[in-house]
Design a protein around this nucleic acid. Sequence first.
RNA 1: GCCUUGGUGGCGGAAUUGGUAGACGCGCUGGAUUCAAAAUCCAGUUCUUUCGAGAGUGUGGGUUCGAUUCCCACCCAAGGUACCA
Length: 949
Amino acid sequence: MPFQKKKFAMQYNFQQIEKKWQDYWSKNQTFKAENNSDKPKYYVLSMFPYPSGAGLHVGHPLGYIAGDIYARYKRHKGFNVLHPMGYDSFGLPAEQYAIQTGQHPAITTEVNINRYREQLDQIGFSFDWSREVRTSNPDYYKWTQWVFIQLFGSWYNKKTDKAEEIETLIAQFEQDGNTTIAAVCDEDVAQFSAEEWTNFSDKEKQEILLKYRLTYLADAEVNWCPALGTVLANDEIVNGVSERGGHTVIRKKMTQWMMRITAYAQRLLDGLDTIDWPQPLKDSQTNWIGRSEGASVTFKIKDVEGEIEVFTTRPDTIFGVSFMTLAPEHELVSKITTPAQKEAVEAYVEATAKRSERERMADVKTISGVFTGAYAEHPFTKEPVPIWIGDYVLASYGTGAVMAVPCGDQRDYDFAKHFNIAIPNIFEGVDISEEAFADKANTVIANSDFLNGLPYKDAVTKAIAELEKLGQGKGKINYRLRDAVFSRQRYWGEPFPVYYNQDGLPQMLAQQFLPLELPEVDKYLPTETGEPPLGNAKAWHWLQYGDEGKVVTKEEFTNANPVGKIGGPLELNTMPGWAGSSQYFNRYMDPRNTEAIYSDEAINYWEDVDLYIGGSEHATGHLLYSRFWQKFLFDRGVAPKQEFAKKLINQGMITGTSAFVYKDVEENKVYSKGVVGDKKVNPVHADVSLVNASDELDIEAFKRWRPDLAEAEFILEDGKYIVSREVEKMSKSKYNVVNPDNICEEYGADSLRLYEMFLGPLEQSKPWNTAGITGVHGFLKKLWKLYLTQNDSEPTADNLKTLHKTIKKVEEDIENFSFNTSVSTFMICVNELTAQKCTSKKVLGPLAILVSPYAPHIAEELWEKLGNTESIANAAFPKFEEKFLIESTKQYPISFNGKMRFTIELPLDLTKEEIEETVMAHEQTIKYLDGRTPKKVIVVPGKIVNIVG
RNA sequence: GCCUUGGUGGCGGAAUUGGUAGACGCGCUGGAUUCAAAAUCCAGUUCUUUCGAGAGUGUGGGUUCGAUUCCCACCCAAGGUACCA
């Protein structure tokens, strides 16, 4: 039937088109990137997802679509583009699910990944899937373990300002001991000579080296939940108890693997100036690192052996000290507390252990603390200074102790007022009867012996000098950044390639034995003795003879032949979520390499990420740790660049638009939005798929969905039931999740891609409302129609003007990541060309290329219809030509006192005077002036005329 | 609390160096087509209005011939705040 056939071709059949081109790309490996090419390289990376059980919702692809548009654009611009994707597949939700169901996390993870892949494939991304990585794959985490071993085998030399092999440190110990070394290390390292070093036992040597290594064991404070037998994140704690089950949580010290990221504090700060990342993100890293200059001051304690070290940014105010405050967790607290105060102090310490750090920081209104009964000695006046404890001092910041200067610090001031402690005034001519005076710049110091009369800067210098003379202080730069805890008491993470020898000292597995694979366990919970889940593994001991090594049971290990045997129990902790994501961007360059983390050729070709797209919530986690690892790999000659990503864009969150029906509190009635009035009602979530574009509820479907309301009476308005709408986080529990699959099915991937971009600026968060998608879908239909008639005719001036206006705008928009305005531009362009009845291939061809990064499937199809036989993916981007846009006249807006009243069309080559003359003579002007004489006439040629008066 | 971002019609948003506020789209209203509907097309749509005009970009001030845009103070919402990823 020829009639039907013709009609078929007339219609935009997105399902058929999208399937066709996705198959084509896959079959032809259109987007496979080569590790060498004559073209310049460009590396576009989107942060890889954690494959959760819920699947993708429309919020996830936002950043991927933006990245994909940019990657496709760069191909049109002649670049060899690397655009990979993978999965951050270790993580807590899979483990939680395993605990609940007993299913191995590897199985659920595999299922989730397959689902993600299906969903991603539907959207038509130009990923090079041959490079996929999964952090939970042994082939991948082999190299995570390898980096860990490199960190263990390195120390930070402050003299060369970089990480070096531990062997260079040992050589120096052998030569000079540790007296001449400038290293970043633990604070409690004793001094030793070369001779002493040589005489140390192996165990002693290993213990000392551990204090220098870039990853090391230390006691760190954690949120311990005894009932769950696990450590909790701050956000798993609500009001001091665990979110799950409401159990008590306490602060507790545990031995943990740590990363000496503090060694890189200054370089992480300095590096920010060299990368094009959003300023807010840089700000949060800067604040996180928290550099402050000041002094470290040592206070002796009266009648007790020991001293208190504090860090202060205001050594100039040292004569204003009237008390000291220690964090309740400070190690000296139990030592210095007098018997009379013991009970009160212990009670306070216990109470504080129940509060989270965040709670303590956020709560500035409640003032609490206890006097220890002990006194310190002021370094200069030798007067006694009472020592208090207070939870506003955090153990993890600085030294966990402050010298309190109430006249100069508001928190100290409030504390002193509350507990009736003296507030000596050390500022010249400043009233401190109401509040502390923290303005450094605008006063001079008084009542301060040798500091009297000095302004802030001079007083700081002088105070430090005097402290140095006493041997009780020195100038110091302090960082808020702390070493990162790298152990997790979890199952579903990378095992540490570590066993413990007879002395209990950690030993690294040799590279040939990597990866050390995650063992099977029966239960994913902590053991009965409170050990991490790996404690449940039957075989988790390392047994090695020479080049032969394997994982065995404890019995096998104990009974094995002792001659030449090495090994011991393996580490029970696993690595944290950020371990696998800290170098994945490099691994994509050469993901199947089994000999090395990646080849020199690959890393020297791709070097670094040119554009990285991801959420701002990773600002101080993933993005700081990755920069740290990259700098370390750089120091050790493994990576050629100090920073892994030149440019970074944060995509915003897509929120959901929840729908509510109003259920009467007493009666079994639900009211439409407009008829609620002042009735007492409860809002009840309705699934957004049951609501149409006009907020009208499908009542029958709703009744099937919520059988408990099937019998309810629905009070309508105008015969319809209208829901109320509210923007909330997109989440299953709020029934506002929208799946991209459904959208692709109903409107197609190209519509989804366009609509995600059309919603608003990439960086901002914005609500999703499926109703609006008909707009971009309608645009694609119009675009399709525009290509129904095409020929080799010459384009008109109007055609060319529309085309080149569009080229200019779209190119600018892509470069500025302003994708939403591009979509509008396409709509305007197609509306104009349709009105112009444009049929010229010389216009339609370039337009298809412009559209193709955004809507690649329809673009390929139209490109083919135009007679091309090659994929559009590598077609050259159209060149903008100014000459088609030149205008000779302008619609001048004429405003009165800054308010536009009417426009006049005038030639653009008029002078200021000519414009003024013409405008003032215009009848509309005369009408608006109504006989008044203007005070002033502002003429900006090419822009505006403003008449004042 | 602190740091960061944002606030413009009924809704998403546009306005690239201070120069025509509301582009584009949704929704809504009216019309064409249709037996009817869907789809499509056309017109209108910031608010108030005595139809002359007036007001208007979270609130209150300021700078300027002119402010969504710059400055000050405040209000509200979202993200982060070290073991969610």
